[in-house]
Design a protein around this nucleic acid. Structure first.
Lengths: 337, 337
DNA sequence: TACACTCGGGCAAACGTTTACGTAGCGCGG
DNA sequence: CCGCGCTACGTAAACGTTTGCCCGAGTGTA
């Protein structure tokens, strides 16, 4: 049976069942206060006419939408999509849907999305973004926010779940040092998120702790979008051709590390014999690269879980700890054997 | 200045500005019918109090939400996340947000999400799912739907954007045949989507066209979740150990192909000398695998674009073609040299 | 018989918008 | 001076829910 143009409303159900709107509502929400016979009649009408409640009206009335907003740099990145998938699962269990926005590391888009999410009156926001254009007290309607992985510097009292990037940077660098590397390059993006900056700091700390100099010439910055491995490949090739010497590479993530691997291969440099490489994230790329890539493993599932739990707490009016650091660990593979 | 617990409403803006609600609405929507002085006063109040319109109320009144639902098997898969990113971009340009749901190839979850999306009164749905539990006439409120990549068999008159999987299957298989392969295995999932089934049909067509028998023993089905390459690796290892002989592999996607590559490597079988391998999707995995993987390239950006355009047309009440097939092409790399 | 109480259910307000309609004031042509 | 049209608003209904309040009928009790 073809449906009418617009979905049937509660009032129509009420009329068809010969009861009042209130009764229909009570039956649907199982609030009691109706006879068994009435219940059957109402449910029959609902089933036969395919009534589905209008969430917009419900949201208006209840002042909550059962929707979570999620601002992500780029869903195409394995780490973020894992985070998103886990978050979606966790929220689905609690009856929430997730609105996903890719700000593509653009502060303007981030701000626009934030405004949109607030306008849609999402019940909370998981923000993986370091956008900085929104002022603290400019966020209206004080919607609960939790940052994951990255956050703006000025995000005073907004809770965040991050990984132990500083330690990750140290672990990776020390691992290279222990395997005899003395000139270790750090490949990173130009304007990186805090989490990435911390990896760089860990790298420098490790060098200094082992009496090695921090050589600015060994800091290799990628200009454009860091997403694609192709750019890392090209940039490193240029560095190699320019005659810079190094015997180890710590890349800010696996995608860049894989690009580095390819550039080294292009140049006939052997890994791990001539140069050893460590990536970050331990994503699928690390496992399937050749040689398999040593990488600092993070736990996006756990980070997502923590972030969701914190946000749900916030939504229910509870307090949560301001900073939640999830540990990392080094996974050793062929690229540093 | 701290915001009050709940966002300020239009009525409060009206009171503060000393005008009626209607006037505020007119100012906000630029409908005219107010003096310059009034406009300034209203806008000042809005700015100072951080008023942001309540979309739930707007949606209720206007009977549309400016939100699109997207049902995806698994956002973690490179192909789907690319599709999602592109779709999000396209819709954002038109003022829509995107609600993403991962049904993880589970019909029950798919149906549940579909119901949720309808309840939220999304303006349209992009569905990448072959779920079958919802009956045609059971979809209430006849919300516009466009299928992308996959679709239920009974989806009578619902438009779809698909890639030319049949041709892709043929291209891959013929490529292997032309390179001397005579016993070509097909690696696929157990209960695959239509698009994947079509790749299998293309494979069989190519074999027959070249006088090669279709050997059921060369059809390698993965049991569980197809997502992770690890399962493909294990399954192929078992097949190798069981003594089945083959000189070519056509894998239903790149992730499986990479798993195959690893299994072959484990077994000391050389690629491409002993066995040649072709994947599907030409994802990033194909480029970074060793040897680099020949693959059937698809164009998720284009598919997303077509799907979004179709859905937007539908939303505006126009008709669209029922089936839109996006071409594929073979990318040759080391795995079939 | 009068009372209290329970059960089953209706009435109507409220949530925050948009928009059709009404109207007061004003300028202006005839 | 009348009537007309315009500008600049205000009034109120409507969208589809939830929920506090009220009420009539039946039942049990004193």
């Amino acid at each position: 049976m073809a449906q009418s143009k617009r979905p049937i409303s509660m009032r129509e159900v009420a009329e068809l069942a010969g009861v009042s709107i209130a009764t229909v509502s009570r039956v649907i929400n199982g609030l009691g206060g109706f006879s068994e016979e009435t219940r059957e009649r109402v449910e029959k009408v609902i089933k036969e006419n395919g009534y589905i409640a209008n969430q917009a009206a419900k949201s208006l009335r209840e002042a909550r939408t059962r929707t979570i907003g999620m601002i992500v740099p780029d869903i195409t990145n394995d780490f973020f999509s894992t985070l998103a998938l886990q978050a979606e699962r966790a929220f689905a269990d609690e009856g929430y849907s997730v609105l996903i926005c890719n700000d593509e590391n653009d502060a303007e888009r981030g701000e626009h999305y934030l405004r949109t999410l607030i306008s849609k009156r999402v019940d909370g926001i998981i923000c993986i973004s370091g956008r900085t254009t929104f002022d603290e007290d400019e966020v209206p309607g004080n919607v609960p926010i939790v940052y994951v992985d990255r956050f703006p510097e000025r995000s005073a009292d907004i809770p965040r779940v991050i990984s132990d990037d500083l330690r990750g940077g140290r672990l990776a660098t020390e691992h290279l040092i222990e395997h005899g590397c003395e000139r270790i390059a750090f490949m990173t993006g130009a304007h990186s998120a805090i989490s990435v900056q911390n990896r760089g700091i860990g790298y420098e700390q490790a060098l200094e702790a082992h009496g090695l100099a921090v050589d600015p010439g060994l800091r290799i910055e990628l200009k454009g979008r860091v997403r694609r491995f192709q750019e890392a490949r090209e940039t490193l090739s240029e560095v190699i051709n320019s005659g810079v010497e190094f015997d180890g590479i710590f890349a800010m993530n696996d995608v860049i590390a894989v690009g580095a691997l390819l550039a080294l291969c292009d140049a006939g440099i052997r890994v791990p014999e001539d140069v050893k490489v460590v990536g970050f994230d331990d994503s699928i790329y690390a496992s399937i690269a050749t040689p398999a890539l040593s990488s600092v493993r993070r736990f996006p599932e756990q980070m997502a879980r923590h972030g969701c739990d914190a946000l749900l707490s916030l939504i229910e009016g509870n307090d949560v700890e301001l900073e939640d650091t999830v540990p990392v660990e080094l996974v050793m593979r062929e690229s540093t054997r």
